[in-house]
Simulated scan of single mutants.
Amino acid sequence: MQHAGGVFSLIQGGKRDVGTSLVQHPQIRAVGFTGSLGGGRALFDLCAQRPEPIPFFGELGSVNPMFLLPEAAAARGAAIGAGWAGSLTMGAGQFCTNPGIAVVGAGPAGDAFVKAAAEALEQVAPQVMLTDGIARAYQDGKARFDGRNTVQPVLVTASEGRTAAPNLYETDAASYLQDHALGEEVFGPLGLVVRVSGADEMETLAKGFEGQLTATIHMDDGDIDLARRLLPVLEQKAGRVLANGFPTGVEVADSMVHGGPYPASTNFGATSVGTMSIRRFLRPVCFQNLPEALLPEDLRG
């Protein structure tokens, strides 16, 4: 590997030793990574253990919770449920911003949301996943849910080979907070609905989430007071907070933040999408009292 004015190399390989060799190579000065929590954390540790440590910008996992506030759920819960199904299964659920958890109140409005989501998911045909390993991980994630008494199946399907079919489960806030595994990302079209008893329990649940790429609030005008309670919590949990939408779309824009507190990413001050993303691979230099003839051309008067 040689230094040049613009070099792109694609290295094919399906084993972890490829990534291990890359991050330990002395000419590699910074690393950007998107992948599993286990694999990313292993590479992060290798970067830190180098004789000269280098920055590692890892995007490791996120369930991107959605919160359906009461007025919005009552007015359009079914429509939000159908929209969630579309976002949940987009690209076989292989989006890092895939909204894997929906938080909604107990009662008829929440029931309508769950029913509409399940009906929409039933219409989604199995989709092919990117690799055999990703497909196996999705099947293992589903098995983790099937083996838990803390969740109830709403829609359960079988996935074979590299295909993935959608699955939907339901639990309550107390069970979710007591079982850490329910908050671990399942990369694929699997959704979990967490039912809450009211505003206080919704806020408690929000505080229990780990770091996320995104957090979504579905709200109407009558939900503004509850939204004000949730926002200070969610802005500490996620790199992007949005209202009345679905987070799978990520726009390349000046204001975009695609990162978040650990384990969503290893550097909460960085973004991997948007104009600020280039800062991950730049090093600032201050030129103090240098004569103009020595300054870089773009800094000269």
Rank of each mutant, 00 (worst) to 15 (best):
K142W: 15
D179E: 07
V196M: 06
E201D: 04
I80S: 01
T171F: 08
R148D: 05
D254P: 13
P247W: 14
Y138L: 02
I101G: 07
A293T: 13
D132G: 04
V156S: 15
H218M: 12
E71S: 13
L182D: 07
A48I: 01
V104M: 04
V194F: 12
G239N: 01
A137I: 03
P65A: 05
M276G: 08
N267M: 08
P291V: 02
P70D: 02
F57Y: 15
R195G: 03
R50N: 06
H25P: 01
M276K: 15
G81P: 02
C96I: 02
R41S: 12
V257F: 10
G107T: 03
A79D: 11
P65L: 10
K237S: 00
G58Q: 08
V186G: 06
G208W: 14
P261G: 11
M129V: 04
D298R: 12
F281Y: 15
V257T: 07
R283W: 10
T271Y: 08
Q2Y: 08
T248L: 01
N64Y: 08
N244E: 02
V104C: 12
V193N: 08
A135I: 00
E292H: 02
T150M: 03
A164I: 09
Q49L: 15
L226Y: 01
A174Y: 11
G245T: 13
K207W: 05
A72P: 01
Q152G: 01
I217N: 00
V252F: 15
R279Y: 01
P263N: 07
D223M: 01
E292Q: 03
C47W: 14
E52P: 01
A117V: 07
M90L: 11
Q139D: 05
L22G: 00
E170D: 12
N149F: 14
R76Y: 00
L234R: 09
G32R: 09
T163R: 11
I28C: 09
G211T: 09
A72V: 01
Q236N: 08
S277P: 03
G222D: 08
M129W: 07
G35R: 14
D221T: 15
A48W: 02
A264H: 10
P166Q: 11
G39C: 10
Q212E: 15
R229L: 03
G191M: 09
N64A: 03
E201C: 13
R136V: 10
A106L: 14
S265G: 13
L234D: 11
D200H: 07
C286Y: 13
S255M: 13
G19D: 09
G93A: 06
A85C: 06
L213D: 10
V196P: 03
V257A: 03
T163V: 05
L168Q: 06
A215D: 10
F44D: 13
E203T: 14
V252Y: 13
A4Q: 10
T275D: 04
A75S: 08
L182Q: 10
T171A: 02
L213N: 09
L295V: 09
F246T: 00
Y169M: 00
V103D: 03
E251I: 14
